[in-house]
């Protein structure tokens, strides 16, 4: 996967509106779309994404349907697509089948929030066999050796967790981002680094860029915007955040 630098990745929950929302996000300036495949017990997620996941499950979104929606998005927008889910879903589907079907639907990379590098062997092999990148997370609490292994194992981009906690919009990003980024940069080499968790304002995006990331990931704030005002509000939010990227 080759993502533009700088990049703004927008996370959407897989539901029937997702293709239209993806178009709105890309119109606003999104350069990557992450598509959440809903899971009943999303430990890494705060209330916003939990609620969106539950609503998607209640609406009957299965992993199969989520991958169909991914294919629809792939037909409508021309940016890299990254499904994001949890280990139970990938394993329930079958690791190899999931990677094959995700690749067929247009996925260029995968994020599995609760599969750390040391547990990711079979997934890494299956993804690689389909030419799909596997993205790992580095966090402010990560020890140097873990940052190195996660960054080195990530292809596509490295997901830098910019706040300690679960996903969710917040006022301040973690002050240790700069130090974390420095270590991550050394280990990641040329692989881009995007910062996420808590990104909700243009100032956050500017802060992440100033710290030296290659861009930002916005999730909960995007879902909040959609709940507030649908595709128009999403497009406006993304446009505002994208203005924080250097041109």
């Amino acid at each position: 996967m080759n993502i533009p630098r700088p990049s703004l990745a927008v996370y959407l929950m897989a539901n029937e509106d997702a293709p239209a929302l993806a178009e709105a996000a890309v119109r606003g300036g999104a350069t990557v779309i992450e598509l959440g495949i809903p899971y009943s017990d999303p430990l890494a997620d705060g209330t916003t994404i939990q609620r969106a996941a539950q609503a998607a499950l209640d609406a009957g979104i299965t992993p199969e349907r989520a991958l169909e929606l991914l294919a629809e998005i792939h037909a409508r927008v021309d940016v890299p697509l990254v499904p994001m889910t949890y280990g139970a879903i990938v394993e329930g589907y079958g690791i190899e089948a999931f990677c094959r079907d995700a690749a067929k639907a247009g996925a260029e990379a995968l994020i599995v929030a609760d599969i750390p590098p040391e547990e990711s062997g079979p997934l890494r092999d299956a993804a690689a066999a389909e030419g799909v990148d596997l993205i790992h997370l580095v966090a402010p609490t990560s020890r140097p050796e873990r940052i190195e292994s996660a960054a080195a194992a990530s292809t596509g981009f490295v997901y830098l967790v910019a706040a300690v906690g679960v996903t969710g919009a917040r006022e301040n990003l973690d002050p240790r981002v700069a130090e974390l980024l420095e270590r991550t940069r050394t280990a990641a080499g040329d692989t881009p680094i995007l910062g996420g968790f808590g990104v909700s304002t243009r100032a956050h995006v500017e802060g992440l860029i100033a710290a030296g990331t290659d861009g930002a990931i916005v999730g909960s704030a995007a879902i909040d915007a959609i709940e507030r005002g649908g595709p128009e509000a999403l497009e406006a939010l993304v446009r505002d955040l994208a203005a924080g990227l250097p041109s």
Binding site: G87, D114, L137, A139, R146
Partner: peptide
């Protein structure tokens, strides 16, 4: 095993 978000691995 350990199937948790990176933040708590340390």
């Amino acid at each position: 095993g350990r199937f948790v978000p990176e933040t708590v691995m340390a």
